[in-house]
Computed example of a mutant assay.
Amino acid sequence: MVKRPAGRTLLLAVLVLAILGLQARLWFGEGSLRHVASLRKQVAALQAENDTLADRNRLMSADVEDLKEGLDKIEEIARRDLGMIREGETFYLVLDRDAAR
């Protein structure tokens, strides 16, 4: 067996420890592959939530524009929520017998 100089053995041991340290950080530490995968899942969930909120905002913006431009939307809301009936209209309320019991 060939005997190595002590300096070379020490350098080899330091390099092996450095590689092991970097590998441990790659697999288990901050910025590890597992951590990055977790962050990607969080980003996907937040993006889906943002898309939902953006759709809701577009609908609300359209409602605001309708309210600004004409009375049709106001009348629709008044009829639906407040039970508005125009003068000259006849209102009929039909009750379902099964629902009344």
Rank of each mutant, 00 (worst) to 15 (best):
M1D: 08
M1Y: 05
P5V: 13
R8C: 15
L10P: 11
L12N: 07
A13C: 04
V14M: 02
V14Y: 01
V16Y: 06
V16P: 05
L17M: 06
A18C: 04
A18M: 03
I19S: 04
Q23I: 00
R25H: 03
R25T: 03
R25N: 05
W27T: 02
G31F: 05
L33V: 13
R34H: 08
R34W: 03
S38E: 10
L39G: 10
Q42E: 11
V43T: 04
A45Q: 10
L46Y: 04
L46R: 04
Q47K: 12
Q47G: 06
Q47E: 09
A48M: 00
N50S: 00
L53A: 03
R56M: 08
N57K: 14
R58V: 13
L59R: 15
M60I: 07
D63S: 05
V64T: 09
L67I: 07
K68V: 12
K68A: 12
L71A: 14
I74T: 13
G83C: 00
M84W: 15
M84T: 15
I85Q: 12
E87V: 01
E87P: 03
G88E: 02
G88S: 01
Y92R: 04
Y92C: 10
R97C: 12
R97Y: 12
D98G: 15
A99F: 07
A99W: 07
